[in-house]
Amino acid sequence: MEISNHMRDEHRMCDDEFAKVEQAVNGGDFGAAFSAFENFMVDTLKHFDREEEVLFPAFEAATLSTEGPTQVMRYEHNQVRGLLEQMKDALDKQDKDAFFSVADTLMILLQQHNMKEEQMLYAMCDQVLAEQAKELVEKMKNH
Score class of each variant (00 low, 15 high):
residue 55 L to G: 05
residue 50 R to K: 15
residue 56 F to V: 02
residue 13 M to L: 13
residue 18 F to A: 03
residue 85 E to L: 10
residue 72 V to E: 14
residue 82 G to S: 05
residue 99 F to Q: 08
residue 142 N to D: 12
residue 23 Q to R: 12
residue 128 V to R: 15
residue 33 A to R: 09
residue 1 M to N: 12
residue 77 H to A: 08
residue 1 M to S: 15
residue 129 L to D: 08
residue 81 R to V: 05
residue 134 K to Y: 07
residue 88 K to D: 04
residue 39 N to Y: 00
residue 66 T to Y: 10
residue 86 Q to I: 03
residue 123 A to I: 03
residue 40 F to R: 00
residue 42 V to W: 01
residue 121 L to K: 01
residue 68 G to H: 13
residue 54 V to P: 04
residue 15 D to Q: 09
residue 103 A to R: 04
residue 68 G to L: 13
residue 123 A to Y: 01
residue 132 Q to R: 14
residue 86 Q to G: 08
residue 35 S to Y: 00
residue 86 Q to T: 06
residue 34 F to M: 10
residue 54 V to C: 09
residue 65 S to R: 14
residue 40 F to C: 00
residue 103 A to Q: 10
residue 11 H to Y: 07
residue 49 D to Q: 15
residue 21 V to T: 04
residue 115 M to P: 00
residue 133 A to K: 06
residue 8 R to N: 09
residue 69 P to V: 14
residue 63 T to Y: 07
residue 94 Q to N: 07
residue 79 Q to C: 04
residue 7 M to I: 09
residue 48 F to P: 06
residue 3 I to R: 12
residue 19 A to H: 04
residue 2 E to W: 02
residue 79 Q to K: 10
residue 34 F to N: 07
residue 74 R to H: 09
residue 89 D to I: 03
residue 89 D to S: 13
residue 109 L to W: 00
residue 23 Q to G: 09
residue 27 G to D: 14
residue 101 S to F: 01
residue 11 H to N: 13
residue 112 Q to Y: 03
residue 73 M to F: 13
residue 37 F to T: 00
residue 15 D to P: 06
residue 138 E to D: 12
residue 70 T to N: 11
residue 107 M to V: 05
residue 19 A to R: 07
residue 131 E to C: 08
residue 87 M to V: 02
residue 50 R to Q: 14
residue 140 M to P: 07
residue 36 A to Y: 00
residue 66 T to A: 12
residue 42 V to Y: 03
residue 21 V to Y: 01
residue 126 D to A: 14
residue 98 A to N: 13
residue 60 E to F: 05
residue 91 L to D: 03
residue 64 L to N: 14
residue 94 Q to S: 11
residue 101 S to C: 02
residue 26 N to P: 07
residue 85 E to R: 14
residue 107 M to I: 04
residue 18 F to W: 10
residue 120 M to Q: 13
residue 71 Q to L: 15
residue 64 L to A: 15
residue 2 E to Y: 08
residue 37 F to I: 00
residue 20 K to E: 03
